[in-house]
Design a protein around this nucleic acid. Sequence first.
DNA 1: AACGCTTTTTGCCAAATGACAAGTGGTTTC
DNA 2: GAAACCACTTGTCATTTGGCAAAAAGCGTT
Lengths: 189, 189
Amino acid sequence: MKEFIEYILHFGQLNEQQIAFISERVKELELKKDEYFSEAGKIAQQVGFIVEGVVRVCYYNNKGEDITRYFFDENQLVVEMKSFESHMESSEYIQAVTDCKLIVISKSDWEAFSQSMPGWDNLVNKMIQKILLQKLEKRSPLIEQDATTRYLTFIDKFPQLANRIPLSHLASYLGITPSSLSRIRKNIQ
Amino acid sequence: MKEFIEYILHFGQLNEQQIAFISERVKELELKKDEYFSEAGKIAQQVGFIVEGVVRVCYYNNKGEDITRYFFDENQLVVEMKSFESHMESSEYIQAVTDCKLIVISKSDWEAFSQSMPGWDNLVNKMIQKILLQKLEKRSPLIEQDATTRYLTFIDKFPQLANRIPLSHLASYLGITPSSLSRIRKNIQ
DNA sequence: AACGCTTTTTGCCAAATGACAAGTGGTTTC
DNA sequence: GAAACCACTTGTCATTTGGCAAAAAGCGTT
């Protein structure tokens, strides 16, 4: 909980009362490995904050392959952005990669915070912009480098993630086949 | 100018007076092919709106290769987001791909709009989020498909762009070499 | 320990892409 | 119009990556 409040406070000021107001409305959520936090075709109903574990954002491409777009681990916000903001059906799944502990806030509470806290909208806007910029920075190296470099860049930037993620998910994230990633790992030793 | 106001009004309401207030502060800017709108290592000083022409966002990778990240054409906003928001040096160049006509607003005017127009910040936040989401949607297919599909997806989504862009820029955008793109084009006919 | 299941590794070959160099075609410049 | 320049294409060959199948390794259950 402390981590969640700290995370929020990066994006704006809140007083004790406001922090208490938020804290009263959070719930805990445990997800077992492979369970979904949200699913494609549904409308996002909650915002999550990862206390423990790893989740991935994924979808099925037109060949039916399961493609991972992002990984998130501890102290990161998890929300199906497009669906949550626009109240439209999500096109992505959010799935637990490991057993997870999350803090969640329902969409209705989250939106009601606008009314009770004057600075909330601005804070949320900054938060969302930060998350979107981070997503862009995660994806860019995946286009502009060869497969080995992509892998090395990934383990350099997220060393704590690589060994918590099944090879198959990491391969689809990097845009290569599992066999290729396996070979790349062997060549690096 | 009309197009620029229409663009802004997609993201919020403005009255006649506010529209006039903005209109008085815009300037016109012409860029010849290959001239820069903004440069890496500098701090963004203005926001641009493309009236005519094509620009690209690009950078030099660690091999010194010129890599294109995005193309923008008519009726789109051009701003070095990260630099503009955070007042930090940009890491990217924005360059005219063709001769361009732009409408520009200085950073100081843009920021002063917050004071004179109550809804401005919220409008800008929505605008920036939309631009970031669009950037993500442009980049995603570039990771998840093979080169031929990436090219076909590009000309499908941006048919009017492909023939205004030199092959070398499009190749780096797609993450392939110019020769490969040339061959891909030949194979499709 | 043995079984079934899943994940990862490996081998083999084909296809895609890159590197480099040479050739082609068009445009500008004098 | 010749020369210089630029962008694009093509040829040749090396390297990377994919597709497929089998083997090996890991993991939970009994």
